[in-house]
Amino acid sequence: MTLLTRPPALLPAHGSFLTSGVRWVRHWNEHLFSFAIERPASFRFRSGEFVMIGLLDGERPLMRAYSIASPAWSDELEFLSIKVPDGPLTSRLQMIRPDDQVYLGRKPTGTLVADALLPGKRLFMLSTGTGLAPFLSIARDPEIYDRFSQVVLVHSVRRVSDLAYYDELTAQLASDPLVQEQALLQFHYIPTVTREPFHTTGRIDALAASGALFAPPVLGERRFDPETDRVMLCGSTAMIRDFAAMLEGLGFDEGSNAAPGHFVIERAFVG
């Protein structure tokens, strides 16, 4: 239990946004934290979508887009964020505590959803940094295990301490009541670190080129195949740009909500 040393920070009502109370906050290191807020009864979303989150800045809310890290069935909305010391929002958002309030957008949206992909056998979710967030949502959604026989989550970070949710993912979501049995057989987690010693090192493109992404227990071809594989990309602009170009060269088509394809990116976060 967290003891508050100050009264909860309550926000004035704003017609454009909902207000929601903070349930918990977890600081992974000096650069990274997670938090969850109460999910309003009227709020509906698809696993993998994002929504606007914010705090009051003078007389107006300051809002930024955040991918929802909790699955669509959860009674809370979970988020993963970096800490930017001088960031207009994150410099303050990292100070929130349980029972504080944040503003929440009314309409989630996004293309990192299963509906934007054609049917396939293997789903690869490739992420860097906080790009992990939407894939935490998708990996905990039972529907994804009905759509794909294998679900592969790759998370690339600079330092070992940046591997948020490492214990839960290494355990193949064993504590998740809705997907634990399916995840034990179908879910594969591949963390990689680029600037510190770790059992897997190197960028995601290097792991793909070497075949490490397709090593056992990931079954099937030791390469990306548009006939069977579907890919989701979220993270740094450079990673997304390079991987999208590589996939297109292999015959993959980008998908959207209107026209499902072989791979998807979240263009709202790409410059």
Rank of each mutant, 00 (worst) to 15 (best):
V157T: 06
E168C: 12
R158H: 12
T170A: 15
S161Y: 06
Q172C: 13
L178M: 09
A206W: 12
L213W: 09
V154C: 13
S210L: 08
A208C: 03
V157Y: 07
V151D: 06
A164H: 09
F198T: 05
A139C: 08
A212Q: 15
P142H: 04
G202I: 14
L207P: 01
S149Q: 07
Y145S: 03
V154S: 10
A212T: 14
S161G: 07
F187C: 04
R140G: 08
I204T: 07
D167I: 15
H188Q: 12
F148K: 00
E168A: 15
F214L: 03
V154N: 00
P177Y: 02
S210A: 12
Y166K: 15
L207S: 08
L185N: 07
A206S: 12
T201K: 13
R140S: 04
A139V: 13
P191A: 08
L153G: 02
E143H: 09
R203I: 08
A183M: 02
Q172I: 04
L213R: 01
R158W: 03
V151W: 01
D167R: 15
R147T: 00
Y145R: 11
D141E: 11
L207V: 06
A212N: 04
Q182V: 01
S175E: 11
P191Q: 07
L169K: 12
L153F: 11
Y145T: 00
D205F: 05
I144W: 00
R159P: 09
I190A: 13
Y166G: 08
L173F: 10
V160T: 14
A183Q: 03
F187G: 05
L185R: 10
R147K: 09
R195D: 10
L207E: 07
R158S: 12
V193H: 05
V154H: 02
L173A: 08
D162T: 05
